[in-house]
């Protein structure tokens, strides 16, 4: 539902321009993959969206509204966030990890339990894990729990920062399948990845970043058929191989 607009966004760290004059207009209800090498600024771009990073220049609009930096917590509750390495809180059980924000947001017990159980079964997680702590779960299970947490409040926008890249190929494959079921045409998803195969599989729009600049964007087929330069072509070379 949420359209996203980056309007001449720039961000530097110690005179190093990580995001360089990026302008993007992403309509809602689509899955956009932002693809680039490490250091291309793709994670920073994502964090500018949920206010973890504040841009030096430019404007960001979500569903037509500029980010109100005084109301970040409530804005962020409308954006699921999942990252590589899961970021599960070690002192909380699996259930507590997933439902923390819902609890703080004052959800009813039954409503909360219902949502939690459905998410768990959606990602093929056993309810027996609920009272366990993250350290006792496998990497794949932890990653799924991380996605459950991002989805708990049923946000219209999902920000995924390479959440699948540390997984073994088989686990990654099966989570990809689950994700594809999730992409039902309503949610807007922004996926940051360096894996073009993953991008092609999950996304219906590609943005290629290099050194903080957008070098190409468009439908996957268009980008694949007409890469603007070697940098873009190389991503597909890897994907086709």
């Amino acid at each position: 539902m949420s359209s996203i607009e980056f309007d001449h966004i720039s961000k530097s760290y110690n005179q190093n321009r990580v995001v360089d004059d990026v302008s993007l207009l992403l309509p809602g209800s689509q899955t956009t993959a932002i693809v680039g090498e490490s250091g291309s600024g793709k994670s920073t771009l994502l964090q500018i969206l949920n206010g973890l990073v504040v841009a030096d220049e430019g404007k960001v609009k979500i569903a037509g509204a500029e980010i109100d930096y005084d109301a970040l917590p409530s804005i962020r509750r409308n954006m699921g966030y999942a990252v590589q390495g899961t970021g599960l809180f070690p002192h909380l059980t699996i259930k507590e990890n997933v439902t923390l924000v819902a609890q703080l947001a004052g959800w009813q017990r039954t409503e909360l339990d219902e949502r939690y159980v459905s998410l768990l079964s959606f990602f093929g997680l056993d309810d027996e894990l609920s009272e366990r702590y993250p350290h006792s779960l496998s990497g794949g299970q932890q990653q799924r729990v991380g996605l459950c947490r991002a989805m708990m409040l049923d946000p219209p926008l999902l920000l995924l920062d390479e959440p699948f890249s540390a997984l073994d190929p088989i686990t990654r494959e099966s989570i990809h399948e689950e994700m594809l079921q999730l992409i039902d045409g309503e949610k807007s998803i922004l996926l940051v990845t360096h894996d073009m195969q993953e991008a092609l599989k999950l996304a219906n729009y590609l943005v290629i970043l290099k050194d903080g600049k957008v070098v190409q964007q468009g439908a996957p087929d268009d980008v694949a058929n007409q890469p603007v330069d070697d940098y873009v072509a190389r991503f597909f070379g890897g994907a086709n191989a």
């Binding site: 949920n50 970040l72 962020r76 990252v83 970021g87 070690p90 924000v101 991002a150």
Partner: peptide
């Protein structure tokens, strides 16, 4: 990373302290 997540999932400052930072 955990500090970043605590922020990103929409916890307020005091909630971050109370539910994540202090328990850890």
């Amino acid at each position: 990373l955990l500090k970043r997540i605590a922020e990103a999932i929409g916890l307020t400052r005091s909630q971050q302290l109370r539910h994540v930072l202090l328990p850890m």
